[in-house]
């Protein structure tokens, strides 16, 4: 088996000033795999996610997506920083969904979705619109295409955000606490869309507090605390029988 891993992190570290947020994170995500990252807030989960599409830069170690180094180019044993355009090119196939949705409020749901395909992929407007309508249908909002984000509920906004990311036909989807900003009764509709996406074979990395989702959907689970991977492996095993003291403590609080 010599499949190129979708994401490969090899002793990745990252500091903000003197604060070491990530400390030698190593992990691997295969194509089609769904990885859930859980852990207390401030443990570096979101930062790690943001490193994968180079919204944050890695200080040490090697992080690659589909065998390509993120944010740098290696020539011999030297690393060269990528130009903003090259970094943008790497992001084309990585979709990201944010905790606070970050939809563009001055554009309708449909316009939100067609922006990147039109601007980045130079897709024609009619083609992008047709595709956007399909995606809106897929996330169950076929009748809301002409609504501004402010007129949609949080759950609907997050589904539009997922459709917006999918419009670029990503190979990898990153979810940064996608349900944390939602009212409890709206969480389910977003998780349903994510489950459907997972079952369609999408590679996903999900930072979440939804243990039920992790147990049901994830192929593997990583528990992070204080910038370190404390425990990783089969979600059922970790959630029911955590080995590490810190994992036990965390799970006893959230389950």
């Amino acid at each position: 088996m010599s499949v190129i891993p979708m994401v490969l992190a090899d002793r990745v570290s990252k500091s903000f000033g003197s604060n070491r947020v990530l400390r030698s994170i190593s992990l691997k995500v295969d194509p089609g795999e769904v990885l859930c990252i859980v852990g207390p807030s401030g443990s570096g989960k979101s930062t790690f996610l943001r490193c994968i599409n180079h919204l944050e830069r890695v200080d040490a170690g090697r992080l690659s997506v589909e065998g390509q180094l993120v944010g740098y180019r290696q020539k011999g044993d030297k690393l060269f920083e990528l130009r903003p355009k090259e970094a943008a090119f790497q992001r084309r196939e990585i979709g990201m969904v944010f905790q606070r949705f970050n939809l563009f409020p001055h554009l309708t749901a449909l316009e939100n979705i067609i922006q990147a395909p039109m601007r980045v992929k130079r897709m024609s407007k009619s083609k992008a619109t047709a595709r956007a309508k399909e995606l809106m249908e897929r996330v169950g909002l076929g009748d809301k295409t002409d609504y501004y984000p402010a007129h949609l509920s949080g759950g609907q906004q997050q589904r539009v955000a997922i459709a917006r990311a999918l419009a670029m036909d990503p190979k990898l989807m990153l979810f940064d606490e996608p349900t944390s900003a939602l009212d409890p009764e709206l969480v389910g509709e977003v998780l349903d869309v994510m489950k459907e996406l997972a079952s369609s074979g999408m590679t996903m990395i999900v930072v979440t507090h939804e243990m039920g989702f992790a147990r049901e959907v994830a192929d593997s689970l990583v528990f992070m605390d204080d910038g370190v991977v404390v425990e990783s492996g089969d979600p059922q095993k970790i959630l029911t029988n955590p080995q590490h003291e810190r994992t036990k403590m965390f799970l006893s609080k959230v389950l």
């Binding site: 943008a88 990201m96 922006q115």
Partner: peptide
């Protein structure tokens, strides 16, 4: 304008100018 807007746009591979 909220920083998240720029971030979302960058995550969609749009350039700084776009």
């Amino acid at each position: 304008v909220d920083e998240g807007q720029e971030e979302a746009s960058r995550a969609l591979a749009m350039s700084w100018g776009q």
